[in-house]
Write a protein that binds this DNA or RNA. Sequence first.
DNA 1: CTACCGTCTGTAGGAACTACAGACTCAACC
DNA 2: GGTTGAGTCTGTAGTTCCTACAGACGGTAG
Lengths: 137, 137
Amino acid sequence: METIAIGELSRRTRCNIETIRYYERIGLLPMPARRGRYRSFGLADVARVHFVRRARELGFTLDEIRALLGIATAEDMACGDAREIAASHLQQVRARITDLRRMERVLADTVRACDAGDQVGCPLITTLSATAQLGTI
Amino acid sequence: METIAIGELSRRTRCNIETIRYYERIGLLPMPARRGRYRSFGLADVARVHFVRRARELGFTLDEIRALLGIATAEDMACGDAREIAASHLQQVRARITDLRRMERVLADTVRACDAGDQVGCPLITTLSATAQLGTI
DNA sequence: CTACCGTCTGTAGGAACTACAGACTCAACC
DNA sequence: GGTTGAGTCTGTAGTTCCTACAGACGGTAG
């Protein structure tokens, strides 16, 4: 079977070499075989790194990914558990979007005020100096 | 004029004591006067910490806030510069929202597939194992 | 006098990488 | 055979924005 070096794994997965070694260090990837001093990877490693990177793109934390990997490779794949992780993560993503939309509104209003230029003083500085808490806006 | 201790400053600004000291350490807050060994703050410090916290709530980085503080306290307040910082930050916020919405869509679809339960295997694991990059979805 | 709270300094940790330094290995080329 | 160059190795330190101690000191109330 084909074995590849870390550089090739990095190229195929678009994952930084240092990041791959980091994933190994924290136990997300199994310790690979060695050819001499060099790490020697197989196709399963390519798939696993792809999996991790895709999950990261979806914003899963490394701890969540660790759990997902456990589920993915378990004999009796606990799909319900995976659903739970995804659903809880989805909630967090939605909360974050709500946050960011609030920020966006305030920022956009402020920049608009800047462009209108009919205020005394700088609208942004005024916003940041205002007594009102953002939470109450 | 009134002077307050760090605990009172923390209470008034809802900013952690340790965080206040941290802001001082990195130069976001001026080194305060001391009464004996204890820091002694004035109303300007209250306003400044409020400013920083509000800017953080809007997602500005501490470096951006440093610049904004410079502008806010300059003689000839460079409002245009502040507008630039805000506009550029607004762009980043919007980009982040776009990212998160993509994540949300994939996650929501996957959880829905889980609930439908008409797939072979776990939809989440399948999604993460798929060859397609998220960027291409 | 002794509790007790507040404050002090300095350092370490967390998340998820990234970026070196300095040493080694391996294949190719002359 | 020598040497270049690319790849890899380990180990450590930096990034951002805090947060959490440990261990010592200050000021006040009972």
